[in-house]
């Protein structure tokens, strides 16, 4: 009798997770750069960004804890957190969306572009987001990457006049996630 229960439990678990396949990473990376030539480099790297992709639906989410962005200069990092991003009040930057017409069987090693439609939340401001995302397959799972441009103004981030000429108006974002299959 016990055996039957075990088999049933096993079957139920197997089928309920079928089609719910998730790929995830906790160590994705996001780099942003807003450098102006001949001034100090304004660039930061975050290498502990969490991200999940549901392969059946193309739903995608990524979450970066703002305090995890590392700059070359300690003072720049401090200003970024305290003056611009207010990272104690708004600790998270989040992207949520759906990869349009995502079909995992189409994904190949050389990569395929999908349109990600969703939202992005930074500094407590949520805006709609439509960006091209490249998905490619690797031995362990999927690579998801994207490059896009954001304007600090759109997220109520004020850059004081005194430093405005040292920071570019447009911030280039590069995101790379190496996702592996997970049973989350």
């Amino acid at each position: 009798m016990k055996k039957i229960i075990y088999i049933f439990t096993f079957l139920i678990l197997t089928f309920s997770s079928y089609g719910q396949e998730k790929y995830s990473t906790k160590t994705g990376s996001i780099t942003f750069e807003a450098s102006v030539p001949s001034f100090e480099e304004v660039k930061a790297v975050h290498s502990n960004v969490g991200s999940i992709l549901k392969s059946s639906t193309g739903e995608f989410a990524a979450l970066a804890l703002v305090k995890g962005f590392r700059f070359k200069l300690a003072l720049m990092e401090e200003h970024f957190n305290e003056n611009y991003m207010d990272s104690s009040e708004f600790p998270k930057a989040v992207v949520k969306g759906v990869l349009q017409d995502f079909d995992i069987s189409e994904v190949e090693e050389q990569g395929k572009d999908y349109l990600l439609k969703g939202s992005i939340t930074i500094h407590g401001v949520t805006r709609s987001l439509e960006e091209i995302v490249t998905v490619s397959s690797n031995a362990d799972g999927l690579n998801v990457s994207s490059e896009f441009v954001l304007n600090p103004e759109d997220f109520n981030i004020d850059i004081p006049k005194i430093v405005a000429n040292k920071i570019a108006d447009e911030v280039n974002i590069t995101a790379v996630f190496t996702l592996s299959k997970s049973d989350l």
């Binding site: 995830s24 906790k26 502990n48 969490g50 991200s51 999940i52 989410a61 990524a62 979450l63 804890l65 703002v66 305090k67 995890g68 590392r70 600790p91 998270k92 989350l184």
Partner: peptide
């Protein structure tokens, strides 16, 4: 480590 916050996607606290 330095506590940088709570990731609600994975429901974990992160240190760097």
């Amino acid at each position: 480590g330095r506590c940088i916050g709570y990731d609600d996607l994975f429901e974990i606290v992160k240190l760097d």
